[in-house]
Design a protein around this nucleic acid. Structure first.
Lengths: 193, 193
DNA sequence: CGTGGCATGTAAACGGTTACATGATTTA
DNA sequence: TAAATCATGTAACCGTTTACATGCCACG
């Protein structure tokens, strides 16, 4: 009774560009929703088959030389997507390994936690840069695209959260580096990023 | 060669409080790292068995009346935990269903996206309130606890990100409610929270 | 006593990733 | 035509959740 969400990502991507093959879908997903949603070939290809069997997509009649068999969304597919979009969203069980290691930081070898923090900041800086780049280019690249306002909103949340995480990370790193008032935690020299 | 992370959460919790039973662990996890890490009984009980078999924990000799069999961490267990804490952390594949539905918002029925946004804000407000409560009480409740500084840092990131998400959410809701400059998106009345 | 909920445990299903296999196509 | 890489596909495994089974204990 519960269709895997992979199906809806595929249907959604097909409302953006149509037709698309499994290979194209993977790339399109990675380069658009990739920051907050991932799909692997092992999921995509079987899902394409089952979606086609149910009539939510149809194999595109194009150059079917066994290479890049593309699919198009059907009216039934759009209906199914629309229904799903209206359903309440669920927070799937959160899993943040960084936070876990930070939480148990007292048990870690000296310097390990600070190193993690440096690495987190590095990743966040890189992410933020990338997201802001997209934000600045998207309006021109997608001028007139009716999806654009929603994409910009999505981007906005990603940027807001990444920026907040980065600010926290830089603040906290200073805190870790400065000698603790209590003698319990020993000061740590900052590893080279 | 790759031990499930459930094992390390358990070991970590046992450095905070020892001994603990499976039932206690579940509750302790939920009420501490629960905001960014979840574990179910189906994971906990088998893991306890295998950790005990490897000598990383030992069944506590306490009141073993078949009720609340508790376990203690061993020196080997602490070693294993410490080693794992020093390993680079991995970002597991991100999965944010809200962002997915927002991204495809153009295909959603009228009002659905705004309703999701209202709901997200509700959840974030509630989370934030809870986290700030913990932040204000933790120092007194855990005075002298050597884990405390790390817990406060963890909390700090949670608060920073939740606050950023909430600010974004309130800003964006206004944006969604106000008539779009382009005629493509129709204005939506705010659902009752 | 007996009923309800507490605590432990397990089996099965599920979503998902990984690793591998295979042919087709480009390029050198 | 040889080598590389593209594109599709599949099988096996893995961690996790869900649902269920079971006995224990406190309390009416």
């Amino acid at each position: 009774m519960h269709r895997p969400r992979t199906a809806f990502v595929i249907l959604g991507m097909l409302t953006v560009q149509d037709p698309l093959s499994g290979y194209d879908l993977r790339k399109a997903i990675e380069s658009s929703v990739g920051h907050f949603w991932g799909e692997s070939y092992g999921q995509i290809y079987p899902t394409l088959k089952s979606l086609a069997a149910e009539g939510l997509i149809v194999p595109s009649p194009g150059p079917v030389k066994q290479r890049r068999q593309a699919y198009s969304i059907t009216a039934a597919g759009r209906d199914a997507l629309q229904q799903w979009l209206a359903l309440p969203f669920t927070n799937d069980p959160p899993r943040n390994e960084f936070l876990l290691k930070l939480f148990f930081g007292r048990e870690a070898p000296a310097g390990a936690t600070a190193a993690h923090l440096v690495e987190l900041n590095r990743r966040n800086r890189s992410s933020l840069e990338q997201l802001e780049q997209i934000q600045s280019l998207a309006p021109k690249l997608n001028a007139g695209n009716p999806h654009l306002p929603y994409w910009l909103m999505t981007l906005g949340l990603g940027i807001a959260m990444t920026r907040a995480a980065l600010e926290w990370g830089e603040r906290t790193l200073l805190e870790l580096e400065s000698p603790a008032p209590d003698a319990e935690t020993q000061p740590v020299t900052r590893p080279t990023a």
